[in-house]
Amino acid sequence: MVQRVNRKIGLILTLLSIGYLYMSYQLPTYLYIPLDADAVPKTLGWVLLVLSIALIFSKDSDSEEQKAKRQIPKTDVKALLGVGALLLIYIILFETLGFIIMTVLFVYFCSWFLGYKNHSVNAFVSIVFPVALYSIFVFMLQIKLPQGILPF
């Protein structure tokens, strides 16, 4: 079991290093430059390849604690994916809807989703923080944040 984890990661990293090496060998070279743009990447690619293969054959030195970290209960997986989804939606709509709307909604629903039940406090926090931050950036520091569909 333990060995299998290392083997899997090792294989993935091997593929990564091969991909990286392939790209390094595609880099253009120039005359009269002793150490060109591809020298260091090529070295790194080969080193990673060797290390990945070493990892495949290495014994696992994980502590029990480390192994326990890998056992994620199903509810937690759902929670993580949920937060991930919220983040993704946030990023996708950030510039269209603007900073204030997105952030207020994000903070409110993310907290609710994670089990925060005090809705009045939640509403208060999720409105005050983004609005305060927005004002600091836009009005005090004169750094533009996406205003989206709001008029200010």
Binding site: G82, L86, I89, L93, T96, L105, F109, W112, F113
Partner: peptide
């Protein structure tokens, strides 16, 4: 429910 409302509100706003 929280997720659903979030998505619905966003589609509306969008």
């Amino acid at each position: 429910l929280a997720l659903l409302i979030f998505v619905l509100m966003l589609t509306f706003l969008a």
